[in-house]
């Protein structure tokens, strides 16, 4: 699956996307936990989930317990500041 990062999260991690393979019945929270062990930058980027928004295939998700599949495009980003 494709994972995208934007704004401050992208800056902290130091890259704009990752590609990973997941098992069935994986939740967004499981993915976050998997990413946090990659290195200190990921750990820092995901330390405060309250200030992180997530989308799956361009739709905002209400809960990090949302299940995802390998065909999904998932994105992590701070609250938007456009307009």
């Amino acid at each position: 699956m494709k994972i995208l990062y934007f704004a401050k999260i992208k800056e902290v991690i130091g890259k704009s996307e990752d590609s990973i393979t997941i098992n069935e019945q994986t939740t967004v929270k499981d993915i976050v936990e998997k990413l946090k062990v990659i290195n200190e930058s990921y750990k820092l980027a995901f330390q405060d989930l309250k200030n992180i928004k997530c989308s799956v295939n361009c739709n905002y998700i209400d809960s990090f317990q949302t299940k995802v599949t390998n065909n999904d495009e998932i994105a992590f980003f701070p609250p938007v500041t456009g307009g």
Partner: peptide, 25 residues
């Protein structure tokens, strides 16, 4: 405008003379 402030995926970073900052909501 309210949609752009709350939902549409744009992010602003201000660059000052000696630093920069991502804006929060």
């Amino acid at each position: 405008l309210l949609y752009f402030k709350k939902k549409i995926t744009f992010w602003k970073r201000e660059n000052y003379l000696d630093s920069s900052k991502w804006l929060d909501r």
